[in-house]
Write a protein that binds this DNA or RNA. Sequence first.
DNA 1: GTGCAGATCCCCT
DNA 2: GGGGATCTGCACG
Length: 186
Amino acid sequence: MLPRKFYNRDTVIVARNILGKRIIRKIRGIVITGIITETEAYRHTDDPASHAFVKQTERNKAMFDEVGHAYVYFMYGMHYCFNVVARHPKSKAGAVLIRAIEPEKGIKKIQKNRGTASLKNLTNGPAKLTQALEITKECYGADLTKDSKLYIEEGIKPKKIYESPRIGIKKASDKLWNFKINIKKI
DNA sequence: GTGCAGATCCCCT
DNA sequence: GGGGATCTGCACG
């Protein structure tokens, strides 16, 4: 799996470099894996859109804690989103939102969790992939650098990375901190 | 295919 | 007591 130091770099760098990596989720003996295809970077004092921008609170404290852990939060009354804590050593907070993955193993389980047989609509959104992988606040703070029920390892090498403004937020839309790759031909 | 309403919880002010 | 890093279904055309 990816070492701690992978996450000990600028959040935007990690958001780009984590594309193509493989996320592994184990649920009661069932293994689900997928390739990370879309991410967003959320930093600290220079990023008004970040949860960490105002100050440290009970909800966002994981963003200030050790890198390589999970930051999971609940929103809109029904959805979870999954982030990986990552930041430059000089920064106090930061996280990379995992917005989409390309499923590899455990597709049956994913379809069951998502309640659909569709293949295209399984994990192509931040709340969809947490539902597909059964990521809830139980996973808050989980260490992603250890072999456990949830971690990240090496994957494929992306060719072209596409940059855009981050999705669904109003602030700091000038920052092109949404990154994605196209891996339809693996 | 686009657009909008509704779901409905938790943390912060 | 407000609003949010979203998704789905249904309406319309």
